[in-house]
């Protein structure tokens, strides 16, 4: 399975990459870690004429603490995030979820920007972005704009990003009191989740407040389980209300009711994880 022929461009700045993307539009694909794009090319599911390699743009990679947010460059690799003390301190949900993303060799190359740009409905990072209320920076030759994760994910592999825009950075608002919880149901370690939940919230006197739970692997896109989260704040932790938020359909992974049951398990365990009680 060899890759189809393409033209290879290697810009050294975002401005140069944006100009190349503007010129080639939909005939071009941006190359980040390549851990999804290269299999897609190998299987000839896409045959772009041009690959624009973002790998040499220095300032796209890095983790920085700003006044009110943690900033992640789009080309920051999973492995950099996994080992980052800043991420562990200010966005521990990411640290908690990363070991579930694929395998070591893939985390050594795959990038946060690539995952969020791809928007796989069963992927861990997009759900974490939603739970954390992250903002996503999109840059084109026209300039840049910031968009909230809640407005960014639109459908199956569909996002608010235009073909001419590069995802350049992600900002995660700081919330020092925030607790996090995570759980996913998968057949084998490193597989995409059958159902998963990423949770953030505050806990006072054993009660949860401001709970945000992003479900992944349930629908065509990551979804905030708002109804079930409200119920959990009143003590209903078992995801009984989850049907109001997600509607898994029967697919290759199982029938709808089984997938909903898996989603409930993921919800309950992520929330109990957040509370710090053992996962029954």
């Amino acid at each position: 399975m060899k890759f189809p022929a393409f033209k290879y461009l290697r810009p050294s700045s975002v401005a140069e990459a944006a100009a190349q993307l503007a010129e080639h539009g939909d005939d071009a694909r941006l190359l980040a870690g390549g851990q999804t794009l290269m299999p897609v090319l190998a299987m000839r599911l896409a045959e772009p004429e041009v690959l624009i390699d973002l790998g040499r743009i220095e300032n796209l990679r890095g983790i920085a603490l700003e006044d009110d947010a943690l900033r992640l460059g789009a080309m920051t690799r999973y492995v950099d995030l996994e080992r980052s003390a800043l991420v562990a301190e200010h966005a521990p949900l990411i640290t908690r979820a990363l070991p579930y993303v694929a395998h070591v060799a893939i985390r050594n190359r795959g990038t946060i920007g690539g995952s969020v740009a791809l928007a796989d409905p069963a992927a861990e990072m997009p759900a974490c972005m939603l739970a954390l209320g992250a903002e996503i920076e999109l840059t084109s030759t026209e300039g840049n704009r910031w968009i909230a994760a809640e407005d960014y994910f639109l459908g199956l592999y569909e996002t608010a990003r235009e073909d001419t825009e590069i995802l350049t950075a992600i900002r995660i608002p700081l919330a020092p009191e925030r607790r996090v919880g995570f759980y996913e149901v998968a057949r084998r370690h490193g597989d995409y989740a059958l159902a998963g939940a990423a949770a953030v919230g505050d806990v006072e006197d054993g009660r949860i407040q401001g709970l945000r739970v992003a479900m992944f692997g349930c629908d065509d896109l990551p979804v905030l389980a708002k109804t079930a989260a409200k119920a959990a704040e009143t003590g209903v932790l078992d995801g009984a209300w989850l049907e109001a938020d997600v509607s898994p359909t029967s697919n290759i992974n199982g029938e709808a009711h089984i997938r909903l049951a898996q989603a409930r398990v993921a919800f309950r365990r992520a929330v109990t994880d957040l509370l710090g009680v053992s996962n029954g």
Partner: peptide
């Protein structure tokens, strides 16, 4: 994983990395 090599010290899939990269 049969194609795993080290690139800049890190285990990497050779089949998902272009030689130009």
């Amino acid at each position: 994983g049969a194609c795993t090599v080290r690139v800049d010290g890190a285990a990497t899939r050779g089949c998902l990395t272009l030689a130009v990269q």
